[in-house]
């Protein structure tokens, strides 16, 4: 199951933001990862930055999929600002454990993205766990 919705706000490069929903299943992560890399490529990120986006999104999705309630969905929103790609990923989880509890994965994320933030909020019967990654094009990424 997967679903893509592009929104109307066009970016200067002709790329738009997009929302993607897939099953919260490890099997679906490569799909999102390729999607993210493709967007970064069309945003004209440099080739290293494209790889970083691919890896960061992979890590964030893998992290959340592990926490997700069975048979639920993984939501991934791509938002394009000037020279920045913002990716918000969230799932519904039973446990309120923040993603950063997985120190190794979190370490990888923070090294790959320009900034990473997490959020856990209580929903009716569980928790919504989300990760927001911000990556900038070449120059800024060449830290």
């Amino acid at each position: 199951m997967s679903e893509v919705e592009t929104n109307a706000a066009a970016h200067a490069s002709g790329v738009r933001g997009a929302d993607v929903r897939v099953s919260a299943d490890a099997e679906q992560v490569p799909l999102i990862r390729s999607f993210a890399a493709d967007i970064a490529m069309r945003l004209d990120f440099d080739l290293d930055a494209i790889e970083d986006v691919r890896m960061a999104v992979d890590e964030a999705c893998s992290l959340l999929v592990r926490a997700a309630v069975p048979d639920s969905s993984l939501f991934c929103a791509f938002e394009l600002l000037e020279d920045t790609l913002r990716v918000r990923v969230h799932v519904d989880a039973k446990s309120p454990m923040p993603p950063s509890a997985d120190r190794m994965s979190w370490q990888i994320l923070t090294a790959l993205a320009s900034s990473v933030t997490e959020n856990v909020e209580a929903t009716g019967d569980g928790h919504r766990v989300s990760i927001e990654l911000v990556t900038r094009t070449g120059e800024a990424a060449a830290r």
Binding site: R42, D44, D46, L47, D48, A49, T137, E139
Partner: peptide, 10 residues
């Protein structure tokens, strides 16, 4: 080599 960083697709 020229740019000192990875090139962009453009």
């Amino acid at each position: 080599q020229q740019l000192g960083r990875a090139p962009k697709p453009s």
